[in-house]
Each structure stands twice: as C-alpha cells, then as structure tokens.
Design a protein around this nucleic acid. Structure first.
Length: 575
RNA sequence: CGGGGUGUGGCGCAGCUUGGCAGCGCGCUUGGUUUGGGACCAAGAGGCCGGGGGUUCAAAUCCCCCCACCCCGACCA
C-alpha cells in the first residue's frame, strides 16, 4: 500500500470533541471520525486494526471449537417479548417499525435470536455441545456514550454462545472460553486481569470480566497482593473492618448543626472522624423507597444493595423526592425516627452494627444526633454487605490486603444456565428420552473497545505504539527525499521486497519533507520504520527504527529483509 | 435522565461583556526558495457565525424557543 493512494488524514491538533487519550490519538492518526454521538466511521487504517483484532479472535474461537455464523442486526419484537426482555430493555434499545408497523429493534445482543435458532434446529443431546459465534455490530442507545470507541452506541462485538446438555458441559465450555480469552488479549499485546464480576441483568451464576489495566478505565477492580484473587469492586465481598467496640451507650443528644449537611461538613463541624458518622442514602428499588446506611467514610455499593433487595432496578432518589417524602432538607436524614416520617425500608452495611455512639441526621433541619445506637435508637430491616471494596480491604480468599486499580472491560464471560432456553423453550431429549432445557453460556469481546484499550495502554507523547499483532501496517518505508530518484528507487525496491516476503508494509511515497513523514509514522504507530537516505544510496544501508523501543539499527538491504522477517514473526504471535 | 459547558471556513481558536466591514494560526490551491523530525516567502480559494423567531436603523454579539456535541453522576462489551 502506498500512502498517496490511501486516505490517512492525520491531524496536528487535538480535536475539541476528544478528551480521552485513545479518542484523541485515533482521531489524530486518521483512523476514526465521528458521525454522531457514539457513532463512528472507521477510516482505512482504523479498519485494518479492527480486522486484525477480529482475526486473532477468530483464530482463537475456532481453536476452542467455536463455529462462526452471522445473525441479523434487525430483530423482530416478538422474540424479545417471548423472552420477556422487550420491555425490560427500555430506552437502551433502538426500536423501529417496518411499513406494516411491525416492531423491530437493532440487536443490542443476540441471546434471543440464537436461542430461537437453536430451539428449532437442535433436538437431541447428540448435537451438543455447540459453540456458535459471530462478529458483528451491536446497537445500544447508551444514556451517555463517551470516550470515543470506548462506549459507543454502535460497536463491534464478538459474541459466542455455548449450548450444553448439563452443568459439567457448561463448565468445560466456560473454561475453553476463559483460556481462549486469555490468549486473545495476550496476543493483542495487552496487560489485563481477569476478575470475578457481578452477573447483573443478564442473569446466570459465574461470570468473569477481562480488564485491560488503564488509569482511564471506567471500572474499578481489586486484586489480592498475595493470592490470585481479583474482582470487580461491585462484586468483591467486604468484611467489616470495624470490630464491635465494647463502649457503653451514651445518652442520645440533639445538637445544632446549622447549614452542615455533608459527611465532611459534619465531621469538621463536630470535630469527629467521618467513620463515626452514619451516612443515610435514599434509593428507589423497583419504586420501593429504601434507606441505605453505611459508615460515613464508605461508599454504597449499589450492585450489592440491588442484589440484597432482590430488585431489578435501583436508582438514587432525587433531592426533591427525599424532601417530599420526609419533609426534611437533604443532609439531615438519619435512622432514628425515620420510619415515622414515611414508610421506608432500612438496610445497613455490616459495619453499621459496630458503630457505637454514632453521629446521624436528626430528621429536622440544622440538627444532628450524637450517640446514636442501633437497637436502642433505631432498628434496621436487614444488615448486609453493602459497601464498595477499598484499597486495604482484606482478600476474601486469603485475608491479605487488596489493591485497587482501574480497568477497561474488554470481555466478559457468563454462565447463563437455562434462563433463555427455558423462556424460549430450547430443549433437547437426553438418552432416556426426557426433555431437558439446554444449558447456555455467553461470551463477549468488545472488538472496537479492545482497539481503544490498546491505544489507552500503549502510547507515548508522539502517538500510538501498536503491538505488531494489531498494527494497521507492520512497517513503513520512508525515503528521505522524494526528489532524489536514487533514494526513491531504493525505497521502491525495499518496499517491493518486503511485500514479496509477506511483510505488511506501507510505503510513504508522498512528496512531503521527511519530518512530516516521521511525525505521521510516530503518530500512527507503525511498529517498524525503514528510512532510506543518503547512506542507502552510497553504502546500501537502511535505517530500521523500532517504534516501541526507539532502537535504531542499520542493515544492508538484503539483510534488512531477513532481519525484519525473523523479528516480526516472533512479535506477530504476541508481545 | 439530572447537573455543567461548547457550537464562528476542513482542524484549533479569538471576536460576544459594551450591537457597527467576520478575524488569527494550522490545513488547502498556485508560484518560488528549501529538504533527516510537522520549512519559509508571496499570491489565492474557502464561512446563512448550529437552526428558527424576536428586539433594533443595524445582530456572531441582546432576548425567546429548538437542535447538536462534549464533560460529571445512575448502565454496560
């Protein structure tokens, strides 16, 4: 490929629309353009990266026994109704009608469609196990698309669905995917961690997330400093880090705290530590009003709260709602006497039980209570693990301290069980002729997100540093002077030779000054740069520069080809 | 959805407070000089100032409505 024949519109300046480094660099490197919020065009170079990721995924899926197919983007409403998700999915689903006013959606995921296929075509345990996958666009009308490719409304995903006759079959399929995913992200040159996660709305039991470590990641994960435990903070169980203090209950005391509302303000005003304050937050769990109590220095883990309550939706109550329900300004709510003001279920984190003589809102403007005690001053409906794990919490496996990091979720694997096969009647006959539901699993990889994650993790001040396995081209050939016919001829030869030896190479034949081409090469992030200058013509020496290390090597023309063939071959398999 | 912000040639921005010829840098075109890290000089092309309505002799600028995009919070690959 010649640069002059391609469309590679690099930018010197950072477009105002981009805030995230991967978004900025993908735009600047001429790989990506926005069309609408969360909807992008992949330019030729960006598309090549996507294709390389797809190819790695494909190889590993096939190796694991997966079979590729293609499901439709446009899906009829009926099947979603049948599985009970047409209404559940809400605004996130792009919906449309055909000319007969029949309802359809753009597929946000494909469990329904593939289960429908399987229920029609698979009737016997003899046909299982099956691992079917596709690489396709998904459509989710996100409330807030952001960070370029990281969270789009249209994105490319690989989704595989496993169909087994029993739990042990599912376990085998799950393990195959677990291993395949590990290989995929290694081959993509990414530093990642596999964490336990919460199954969330998709349902099912076990689930793991594959997190690319990056400070800009949206997800928080904890991992053990000693053993191999790692989990999404939403999932990680928390031990109370308090110990039941033996202190005597002091008498409840009302104090004036004018204009003091937040935990920080209360702590400062009363001269106490945040951990003796009782934080009271209000939520709607499937439209039931809930108060959640945690220690003042903790954060509520909404996933855990949702699970504890068995709710499908949990939403924080608005300030207006709180005032309307309890007739008190926000910031002065506390558990003593709360239930008398409005019917509310109170759930509390385990640590709350150990809080002796706590500070809490007094349910009247500008006042707090001192010495609030569970059992004497208020009761809770349920105690449970409701807080978000933090740095220093203890590993649930081995008890060592946990560390906190941020990650980008590039893949997730689920054991679905019979949720969809039961709802849609996907059953088989076993050896005894008994009809049983198929056991399913689903396994997703965000292809375009993986691309963004790779940039997020691999860049420097000059641009992207692609691993060889993902680079749009493995090498770029640059003649220093486009007007020096000897250099151009030399560069042409090198280019043709590399091509002939199966190296994925692009030739920068633009009539530009060398500096422009160097800047572009760094920005785009080709792993290898070959420069043809005067020494090429006079001494037959080509300059080879590695983008990642900055290492520069001079080789004679013929030697250069072999050198690159050998080195690239090693790197293609992953770094 | 709630909160905050921004819309001015392809890109980055100034101008708006206090209404009076639509500007700057990059990019693009042409010519010349340059040529190993985003060159220089000269001459050009390119804009319904997001859209609609209003106020005014006069609106990028003031007022109202709408739209789009970005950022912060509740969901997800």
């Amino acid at each position: 490929m010649r640069v002059s024949q391609n469309l590679i519109p690099t930018l010197k300046e950072v477009p105002a629309e981009a805030d995230t480094i991967s978004h900025q660099l993908l735009l600047r490197a001429g790989m990506l353009r926005r069309v609408a919020a969360g909807i992008y065009t992949l330019l030729p170079l960006g598309y090549r990266v996507v294709e390389k990721i797809k190819q790695i995924v494909r190889e590993e899926m096939n190796n694991a026994g997966g079979v590729e197919l293609l499901l439709p983007i446009i899906q009829p409403a009926e099947i979603w109704h049948e599985a009970g998700r047409w209404d559940v999915y809400g605004h996130e689903m792009f919906r449309l009608q055909d000319r007969h006013e029949r309802n359809f959606c753009l597929g946000p995921t494909h469990e329904e469609i593939i289960t429908d296929l399987i229920r029609q075509e698979v009737k016997s345990y003899r046909q299982l196990p099956l691992l079917l996958y596709q690489i396709q666009n998904k459509y989710r009308d996100e409330r807030r698309p952001r960070f370029g490719l990281m969270r789009g409304r249209e994105f490319i995903m690989k989704d595989l669905y496993s169909f087994d006759r029993d739990e042990s079959g599912l376990e085998t399929s799950y393990q195959k995917m677990y291993n395949a995913y590990s290989r995929i992200f290694s081959r993509c040159g990414l530093s990642f961690r596999i964490v336990e996660a919460d199954p969330g709305a998709i349902g099912g039991s076990d689930t793991h997330e594959f997190m690319v470590l990056a400070d800009t990641g949206e997800a928080e994960i904890v991992f053990c400093s000693v053993c191999d435990y790692a989990a999404n903070v939403e999932k990680a169980p928390c031990q109370p880090r308090t110990s039941p203090s033996a202190g005597e209950f002091k008498p409840l005391k009302l104090v004036s705290t004018p204009g003091v509302r937040t935990v920080q303000e209360v702590a400062a005003f009363l001269g106490v530590e945040p951990q003796v304050i009782l934080k009271t937050l209000f939520y709607y769990a499937d439209s039931e009003l809930i108060a959640v109590l945690v220690r003042g220095d903790r954060a509520v883990n909404e996933t855990k709260a949702k699970n504890l309550l068995g709710a499908t939706q949990l939403e924080i109550a608005s300030e207006a709602e709180i005032t309307r329900q309890f007739k008190i300004p926000i910031g002065y709510a506390g558990p003593p006497g709360l239930k008398e003001r409005a019917p509310v279920k109170i759930i509390a984190d385990y640590e709350v039980k150990d809080l002796i003589n706590a500070v809490a809102g007094a349910n009247q403007p500008d006042h707090h209570y001192l010495n609030v005690n569970l059992g004497r001053d208020y009761e809770v409906d349920t105690l449970g693990d409701l807080r978000i794990a933090e740095e220093g919490d203890l590993c649930p496996k081995c008890g060592a301290p946990l560390h906190l990091k941020r990650g980008i979720e590039v893949g997730q694997i689920f054991k679905l069980g019979v949720k969809y096969s039961k709802a849609l009647g996907a059953t088989i006959l076993d050896e005894t002729g008994k009809e049983i539901p198929i056991i399913m699993g689903c396994y997703g990889i965000g292809i375009t997100r993986t691309m963004a994650a790779a940039v997020e993790q691999r860049h420097d001040e000059n641009g992207i540093i692609w691993p060889v396995s993902l680079a749009p081209y493995e090498a770029v050939v640059i003649p220093i002077s486009h007007r020096d016919s000897l250099q151009v001829k030399f560069a042409e030869e090198i280019y043709q030779n590399l091509l002939a030896h199966g190296i994925d190479v692009i030739y920068d034949d633009r009539p530009e000054r060398a500096g422009v081409k160097f800047k572009d090469a760094d920005l785009i992030g080709y792993p290898v740069r070959l420069v043809v200058g005067n020494r090429a013509v006079s001494e037959n020496l080509v300059e080879i520069k590695w983008r990642a290390s900055g290492e520069i090597i001079l080789k004679e023309k013929e030697e250069a080809i072999n050198y690159l063939k050998n080195n690239l071959n090693k790197l293609r398999k992953g770094e």
